[in-house]
Nucleic acid binder design. Sequence first.
RNA 1: GCCGGAGUGGUGAAACUGGUAUACACACCAGACUUAAAAUCUGGAGAUCGCAAGGUCGUGCGGGUUCAAAUCCCGCCUCCGGUACCA
Length: 833
Amino acid sequence: MALGKYTPEEVEKKWQEIWKDSRCFEVEVDPSKPKYYVLEMFPYPSGKIHMGHVRNYSIGDVVARFKSMQGYNVLHPMGWDAFGLPAENAAIKNKTHPAKWTYQNISEMREQLQRLGYSYDWRREIASCRPEYYKWEQKFFLKFLEKGLAYRKDSPQNWCPDCNTVLANEQVVDGLCWRCESEVEQKDMEQWFLRITDYADELLKDLDTLDTGWPERVLTMQRNWIGRSYGAELTFQVKDMDETIKVFTTRPDTISGATFMSVAAEHPMVETLTKDADNKTEINAFITNIRNMDRIKRGAEDLEKEGIFTGKYCINPITGLEIPIFIANFVLMGYGTGAVMAVPAHDQRDFEFAKKYKLEIKTVINPVELHDKGEILNESTMEAAYTAPGILVNSGDFNGMENESAKKAIVEHLDKSGLGTMSVNYRLRDWNISRQRFWGAPIPIIYCDDCGIVPVPEDQLPLILPENAQVRADGKSPLPQMEEFVNCECPKCGKAARRETDTFDTFFESSWYYMRYCDPRNETEPFSQEATDYWMNVDQYIGGIEHAILHLLYSRFFTKALRDTGFIKTTEPFANLLTQGMVLKDGGKMSKSKGNTVDPNSMINRYGADATRLFILFASPPVKELEWSDQGIEGAFRFLSRLWRLVEGLEDKLQAVQPASSNDPQIDAAKQLRFKEHDTVRRATRDIENEFQFNTVIAAVMELVNEIYGLREALKDADPKALSSAIATAVTLLSPITPHVCEELWQALGHTTTLTKQPWPTYDEAALIKDEVTLIVQVNGKMRAKFQMANNAPKDEVEKVALGLENVMAHTDGKTIRKVIVIPNKLVNIVAN
RNA sequence: GCCGGAGUGGUGAAACUGGUAUACACACCAGACUUAAAAUCUGGAGAUCGCAAGGUCGUGCGGGUUCAAAUCCCGCCUCCGGUACCA
C-alpha cells in the first residue's frame, strides 16, 4: 500500500472512525483483568476548548493508552460540568434558555475533543444538568438531611452582588468572588449547609495516606485550609452581669498574663455589654465602621490595630483580677469564639494593641536563660511579645512549671469549676450549598406553615428545574416568581406549601461525577455497588491546581459522606493526583483579556491533532508551565513528517515484525541500531512511569529516529528486518502520544491489527551490553581524554591504558601519581600532584 | 512572615543511584540538492584564548564534604505560586 504524502486530516479522520467502529475504548467491569481508572477534570461547557484543556486531556490520553497497552482494563470517561452562571448570562444576552446554550456548547466541544482523538468511552458521557444525573444528588441531599449532615442556619454570608448569590468560604479569594472577582459583601441569610466540619479530622488525617500520590503543595494547602489547632476553651465571667464570654486559645499557659479581653465587632455579646455605655454613639460608630469595611481592607496586613473599650470588665478565672473588655478590629467572628483573651507579653497582636492603648503588659512566661539567672523578662523594655517556650512566673500556684505542661495543668484546674476544657478548633467552616441562582439543581425541600421544613419525598425525584423558565434581565433567578414551581402541596399535611427556590452550589455536581462514570446509565440507583467496587477509586486524576482546595476538598468530603450513608465503600476518591502546569504565551497566562490566546482548532486545522498533541507534550514536563511556541508546533509537525517519510522511503523493504524483534544482528550497523532500539524502550518506559515525563520519552524516540536515518542506507538491503524492528519500536512507543499517524504507519509496515491492541514493548537487558565501551579519563577531576576498551575489562588493564594516553601523560608529567580511581565501564580518575 | 517550587546555552528544556554538563527540539550558521527560493538531507555551534592540538572559565551567589558536585551539606540572593491579624 502506497503511503503518499502526510495529510493529517485524512489520517486522523480515518483512524477516529476505525476506533469508533471497533468500539475499542468501550470498557466493562471485568474482574479477570486489573483495572485502571484515569480521569481528567471534566470541563465546563463554555463553548470552545482552550489550550489548557488540550494539555490536560492529552496528558490523560497518553496515560490511558499507555496503561491499556500494559494490559489494564482502562476506564477513561468524559462529560460536562454543565450547571453554572455563564449559561445564565448567555441566556440573558441571547434571550434564550440556559439549557439550550449549554447543550449547544456541549455538542460543539464534544466534536472538538473527538477531533483530538482521545480514547474516551463516549457511551459513559454525562452532563450534570440532566435530571437523570442531578436526581441522585437530590437523593444524597435527603440522606444527608436524615443523617443530620445537612442543616439550615441563619448567619452572615458571603454575598456576591454581581452573581446575585451567596458563596462558600472556599469560593471567596482575597475578599473577591472566585468567579467574577467582585467584592464580596456580608449579608445575613438563612441557608443550607453541609457539615463538612464533622469530617475535619478525617479529612486532615487521611491526607497522610495521599502522601505519595498527591503533590506536596496541594496537601499543604488542604492542611492549612482545614487549619486544625489544639488548645482550650476558657470561660470568663463578666463583672456585675449574669453573662460569660468564652474564648479559644492555644496558650492557656499564659492566662495569668491576660490583662484584657478583645471581642469581635460582630460578637453577640457586644450589644449587651455596651447597652448602657456612656459613649454608646462612639461605640456604635466604631462597630459600623468595622462592619462596613470591605474584606480586603479589613484583612490587610498593615491595618492599624484599633479598638474601643466597652465599659465592662470580666474576671480572669486564674488571677481573679478584673480586666477590661475591648472591641477590636482584628478579632474575627468567624474563627474560634469571636473573643480572645489578650496576653500582650506573649502575643504580638495583643502587644501592639496594649502599647497603643497603654494597657498592662505582664510577663508570665520567662525564657529559660533568664530564669536560670534568677531574672524575669522586663515588660517595660520589651519591644515585641515573647512567644517562645519558657517557665511560668507571676502565675500563682503554677509558678516554676514549664509552659507546655502548664497548659494541661491550668485547663484541668479550670475544669474543676467548669470554666475550661481542652478543645480543638478548625479554620474550616461548614459548606454553604444554597445558591440564589436558576441554572442549578433544585434543592428538594418544601416549606409548610404547619409542618415547617419538609423534604420532597424520594419517589417524587427528580425535582425538575422548569424548562419553560424565562431568565430575568436583572440577573436574578426567575424561580421565586414561578408560581407553578413554588406552589405545591405539603407532602405531610397536604396543605398549600412553598418550594425552596435556591439551587445547589455547582460544586455539588463535581463532587461525585467520578462515581457516576462507573455506572452512568443506571436508572434505579446512582451507581451499582458492583461497578464502584471494581472501578473506584480513581487511579490517576489530572487537572489544574486551581482546584487544590475547592473541588478536591469537597470531593473528598463527599466520598466520606457517601460512604457513611452507605452508597460506596471508598474513603478517598483520588489515589494519585497530577496537577498540570499552565499554558503560557509570551511569558503570561493565556487569556482573552490579554489577547494572547491560541485557538486549538486552528492548530488542528493547520498541523493536525497529532502534531498539536506532540508539541504540547514535548515542550515541557506535565507538571511544569508550558510556553506556547508557534515554531515549536511547526517543529512537531516536521518531526512527524520526517517519521512518515522514513517509512514511505523504505516501504518496499519493510516487514511486519514486532518491536524489538531483531535478535541476531550480523553487521555493526544492525548491532548499533539494536542497542539504540532497546535502550529507547528502556528510557521511554522509565520516563513514563516516573511522573509521566513525556517530554523525554519523545526526545528518546526522536533520537531513535535520527539513528535509523543515519543507518538506513547501510541496512536497507543488508538487514531490512533490523530496520523494520526499530521503526516498529518507534511507532509503538509514540502511539499513545500521536496515535493516528502511528496507526497509519503501523498499517503501512504491513500489520493488520491496530496499535490499540498492541502491548507496550519490552527490552532485553542483554541487548544493552556493548562489546566495547567508551571510558573517560580525568586527571585531578578534569576530563583529559577518552578511549575505547572491551566491556568489563579488568581494572589494572584499564588503568594501564589510561596512564599511557598522550594527553594524560602530558598532565601527569613531573607529578607523583597518588591514587587512581577506576569506575568500571565509565571513568578513570588519576590523582596526581 | 510562613509553606511549596524553580534558578543550567540565544530559547523551551535534558542529565537514571554523585562520574563526559547542555541530550532532544526551536532559533541561528554552513554545505548538498535547485536556474533560484522553499522544502529536504548532511554538518556546526556554552563563553573565551589559539591556525590547530589544546588550555582556561562555566549549572543564581559564598563556603563545605568528596578522587569527583547541576546533583549531597551549611549560609545567602532572586523569581514564581499559595497562604496569613486564625487567637
